[in-house]
């Protein structure tokens, strides 16, 4: 895994990784390649994807990321807040 990106803040708009990894991950399929908003930092932990392969990496931020259901499923008026490692996220700079 690459070095974790820095400088995320609540309110940032992010896009989740779209790739379908070969191994264990904690980015659910339904939330891949989607745009959401950072709600709150949920601590710092080594990446689960690495730990599942017996690797120990540095702790990095985990975020509550809120999505509109319509952006995930094309329908629904609810929100879904998923807890995601910053490695899964890219900030959408031009939207700020």
């Amino acid at each position: 895994m690459t070095t974790a990106p820095d400088g995320f803040a609540p309110g940032d708009r992010v896009r989740t990784r779209a790739v379908d990894p070969a191994g264990h991950t904690r980015l659910p399929r339904y939330a891949r390649g989607a745009v959401g908003v950072l709600v709150e930092r949920a601590g710092r932990h080594p990446l689960a994807d690495d730990r599942a392969r017996g690797l120990t990496g540095p702790a990095r931020s985990v975020w509550h990321v809120r999505f509109a259901a319509a952006d995930l499923f094309g329908e629904g008026d609810h929100t879904v807040t998923v807890e995601l490692w910053e490695d899964y996220l890219t900030r959408i700079e031009e939207q700020r």
Partner: peptide
Amino acid sequence: TAIAVWDASAES
């Protein structure tokens, strides 16, 4: 009433 679903996908 709005519904907020929370997916416990990490450490919390």
